[in-house]
Design a protein around this nucleic acid. Structure first.
Lengths: 195, 195
DNA sequence: CAACAATAATTTCGAGTCGCTATTATATTG
DNA sequence: CAATATAATAGCGACTCGAAATTATTGTTG
């Protein structure tokens, strides 16, 4: 089953294209559309600085107007709550409601997750690596901002051996202390180490 | 870099979801939308029995009405020609025009293909295998008809050692002889061997 | 320190697009 | 002629974009 590099690249592109179409279709369930599902997922994983319409727009690679519409739809359905920020009253702060949290258990992406779970182990690591690099490469070439977690971020400052383990690090941009839960969340201000 | 099976599956699903979104966005170029690009690609790869609106609708997993719209748009732009079939005057027969053929050189999926070409060889085969099985599994679970080439099809009859190599096989469904080019094309009537 | 301009975060609104469903037109088959 | 199959068309709802408009913050300048 050896094949030329061109045939390999062609096949990969074709498979991704078809998976993309299918993935999109799977997300028209429970009265939500793909953008709304992605917003829900994003809000579940983003840190407090990033749960805003603007950050969502960047994450989705869409316009702020569209992101706003998506959020209004989610609010009307009771899956998120929107409130003005106290510190900057232009800003909107977004949170999942318990209903929104619960809905994530029905996330259609779990279908894909289950299918992935059925793959035999041998295929495992190269699959993830290949997809990661592909995505990264394409995002970079298309000027799409990358979201990442504190661990990979240039802005993270470690405060030596702090007394409280929950405050061992802080964000160099905002100066805030970061809990262990914080550092595992996605951030708009992310800057990759090696970039 | 070892991780649990659950984390693996989760990561794969996330990567595919994000690649899906990006893949879709890349396809809004040259005045075409993703469905129109897929239709163009399909018509370039389908055999003569399959270049019809109905077959396209099945391939795209959409309705005939929507497929019809897509085809009208492509005809208006001059990329395909539509003509009534001679044998069955209900049926529409579709062909790429030279302009349509030429446009495929600008196919945005080539961006993905190039990115895939940049992946190192080691990642190669397991990546294709993983994606193939994932797609197959998901298509099966969602009752999506599979399109394939004659080589993998139950209906293919081989005529022993025929004189002309171009007519060494025929389709068990239509009875037609198949050229070597024919057998490499996608077919609506495809039935997988092991299915 | 008040007035003013520049920047920023978000929403609103109108226009265009997409895809679905239902209906109609046309052709085939028994 | 009735039943079936295929495709075109019309109408509808939902989504996305892009361009103002709204409200708040920041910086500047006399």
């Amino acid at each position: 089953m050896h094949s030329s590099p061109e045939a390999f690249a062609h096949r990969v592109a074709e498979l991704i294209d078809r998976l993309a179409r299918l993935t999109r279709e799977l997300q028209f369930v429970h009265g939500l559309n793909p953008a709304q599902w992605e917003a829900l997922r994003f809000l579940a994983r983003a840190n407090r600085y990033s749960r805003s319409p603007g950050a969502l727009a960047e994450f989705l690679g869409t316009t702020k107007g569209t992101a706003s519409q998506t959020l209004i739809a989610l609010e009307n359905k009771g899956y998120i709550a929107r409130a003005r920020s106290d510190t900057d009253r232009r800003a909107m702060h977004l949170e999942l409601t318990p209903e929104g949290q619960a809905l994530l258990a029905q996330d259609p992406i779990l279908t894909i997750e289950q299918a992935a779970g059925r793959l035999s182990g041998e295929v495992g690591n190269p699959l993830v690596q290949g997809l990661s690099r592909l995505l990264h490469d394409l995002q970079h070439k298309n000027g799409i901002k990358e979201f990442g977690v504190c661990g990979d971020c240039t802005l993270l400052c470690v405060k030596g051996q702090a007394a409280a383990p929950d405050e061992s690090s802080q964000c160099g941009l905002t100066g805030d202390s970061l809990s262990t839960e914080d550092v595992a969340r996605l951030c708009v201000n992310f800057q990759r180490h090696d970039a």
